[in-house]
């Protein structure tokens, strides 16, 4: 019971802190690409419970894998080995984790990320760039 309460508190705290990253994007003007990149990177690491971890050199997929590993209490290698298709369409837990994150960004920033470019991002900065480009299309970078 105690562990569940702690987990819930962790989730709520992460939600609040990550929400502040998005709010900073919403409130800042003019927006620069570097600023959006840094806020999005922080958003991702908080949501993925990887705050304070050194993820330099890791691809976005590797960061998501590490997040699954941390939350499931297993190694990254185990994540890769176990993460076969979770449905008959070929989608995996890793894919779901990424899409849910993207959807949070879309909803909180009121943007629509382009589908295939979102699938092709390699790094945290790629995601930041995608977000910046969508905000710019909407005339919101100032």
């Amino acid at each position: 019971m105690q562990k569940e309460r702690e987990a819930l508190e962790q989730i709520l705290s992460a939600k609040a802190r990550s929400g502040r990253c998005i709010e900073e994007i919403r409130q800042s003007a003019p927006l620069t690409r570097e600023f959006v990149r840094s806020r999005i990177a922080s958003f991702v690491l908080i949501r993925y419970f990887l705050e304070g971890e050194d993820v330099s050199g890791l691809s976005f997929d590797q960061i998501a894998e590490r997040s699954i590993a941390v939350t499931a209490g297993i190694s990254r290698e185990m994540v890769r080995a176990l993460d076969t298709s979770k449905d008959c369409m070929g989608s995996t837990s890793l894919m779901a984790k990424k899409v849910l994150l993207f959807r949070q960004i879309e909803k909180q920033l009121d943007i629509e990320l382009p589908a295939m470019p979102s699938a092709m991002i390699e790094t945290l900065d790629d995601l930041g760039d995608l977000v910046f480009d969508e905000l710019r299309k909407q005339g919101r970078v100032g």
Binding site: A96, V99, M116
Partner: peptide, 17 residues
């Protein structure tokens, strides 16, 4: 994952994979 908008992004992940 049942919300409108989820499929669009998920489909792209599966296609790319």
């Amino acid at each position: 994952s049942l919300e409108v908008g989820y499929d669009r992004l998920s489909n792209a992940q599966i296609a790319k994979a």
